[in-house]
Every structure is written in C-alpha cells, then in structure tokens.
Design a protein around this nucleic acid. Sequence first.
DNA 1: ATTAATGCAAAATCTTTGCACTTTC
DNA 2: GAAAGTGCAAAGATTTTGCATTAAT
Lengths: 138, 138
Amino acid sequence: MNKIRPYRQIIECLRGAGLRPTRQRMALAKMLFEGEGRHVTAEVLHNESISNGVSVSLATVYNTLNQFTAAGLLREIVVDGERSYFDTTTTDHHHFFHTNTGELEDIMADDVIMQNLPVPPMGTKITSVNVIVRVSPA
Amino acid sequence: MNKIRPYRQIIECLRGAGLRPTRQRMALAKMLFEGEGRHVTAEVLHNESISNGVSVSLATVYNTLNQFTAAGLLREIVVDGERSYFDTTTTDHHHFFHTNTGELEDIMADDVIMQNLPVPPMGTKITSVNVIVRVSPA
DNA sequence: ATTAATGCAAAATCTTTGCACTTTC
DNA sequence: GAAAGTGCAAAGATTTTGCATTAAT
C-alpha cells in the first residue's frame, strides 16, 4: 500500500546527516528501501550487493548501516547476541523472531500489545520499548 | 520475601542435568543464588569469583553459565549484541535496561504489560515473549 | 583542490573449543 | 581407575578501526 521511499528523500536524509550520497550508499539504500519492512544483517546485505554486481566491502556495509541508523533511516534490532539486524521500518512496532530460521517479522501495530508502560526507575526516563516474540514451527 | 534457593535444590538440579556438583560449579552457584534476581555477565561473575578467592577460568564461567541455563537454573537475556546477561529469576518477567550503565533490572510482574499476545505466524507457536524497556537518566 | 568515503587487513570483543591435566564418583 | 570437568591458550565470529587510495564537491 505504501509508496516506496523516494530517492529524493533518501538523499535529503543523508545530506541532513552530513553524509554524501555516494555510489555505495545509494546502491545500499536502493536495496534497503525499494521493498518494505526489510530486516537485514550486514552479511546478508553485503551478499545481496555483490550479487547485484555492486562491489562493496563488508566494512563499508557495516559503516553504512550504522550511519543510516544514526541518520534515522534504519532501526537496529537486537534479538540474539550473534548478529545485528537492521529494520527499514522505523516507526514503533515489534517483532516475531523465527528461532529456527533466524528471520525477523514485523508484528503489525494493530495487534496491540502494550497497554500500560511500567513506571521507569527513579531518575530515569523510558527511551524505547522492545518486544520480541520468539516463535518456532508448531 | 522469597527464601534463597537451597543448595540441595541446586545439587539436585545439576544432577538432573547430568552435571556433577564440582567445586567451581558450587562456588558459582553460591554466588548466583545467594541473592535474588541477579543479572550477571560472564565477566562480572568471573571477577566476583576471583575477588572471593575462588580460582575459576573465564572459559569455565562461560561453560557453567551455559550449562546452568540448559539445566533451567538461569535464563539468558539478550539486550545488546555486546554481551550476554544471565538472570537468576527464571519465571516470566521483563526488564529495564539502563543504557548508560549496562545494568538490567527486573520489571515486577505486577506492572502488567502484556494484555493480549499477537497471533503467531501460520505454522508457528510462541516460544517466549521478551520485553526490554530501555531507560536512561532523566 | 579539499574533504570525505572506501577498501583492505588488522585489531577488538565476546564466546567457544581442543587438549593436557585434575577432580569426582 | 574410568569418566567428566577444568584451565589455558588458541580459534571463531562479528563488528570496528587505521591508513593509504579513490571519489565527491
């Protein structure tokens, strides 16, 4: 339903974060944002990039993912200590984690989960709330 | 309020998991279960052990934590990709994560959060639900 | 031309493993 | 004494970093 994020917007956002729209960044951005709700690891994105004939080093993929995250284009999701996932959906939502395949899947915001937030400890404020629902084959 | 977990029970549980109650395991168990609701990393537990004059290698601490987790004495909590936390409370509950200090804190079960679970994807069943509420100094 | 980004390999972390030695049963 | 556990160091895995080269403004 949603339109894919237009290039212009990506370039804007990169510029806003002080990042030049280089060939590699634009190529990675294209792969990331042409679809919707992608959940990628650095390795997956690197492989995809190579497959598409775009030569990028793994280090650059890591750097780029971190820069995109800092710029607000991506959100980092921690599910297991093994690897970092980056989610192209940056609005509030939660995840199913398929423990057998290692895949992440969005939980639609409509499947309301959070009813009342807990009171944060004295002297602290809530930064974010993360819900991971682990699922396995029935 | 709760009584600390008696040694007998630990030994039983270890035996049940086919683990011999060795000096190192008992020492680590003592440190872990004498208090309540501890959240330790391997490194913290290792340091604590050394401080208490119990010589244990870091590798053994890792192995022991994993074995205890497999035996159901501990629960592993994933908050950031940097390190693994092990929680001595194995009943269902969720956590505050102090992003500045790296500390984990239990959210009392009474601060009800989950009202209705989302429907798991076709062909899958829910294994566990994990809520991490990140907090930082106000 | 200036300034920043890239790539590679090396470093840094955290965690696991292999193997000789020690402890438990 | 047989079987399992421990310790150390080395290996693994993921992510970051340093520096020379390349590309962007």
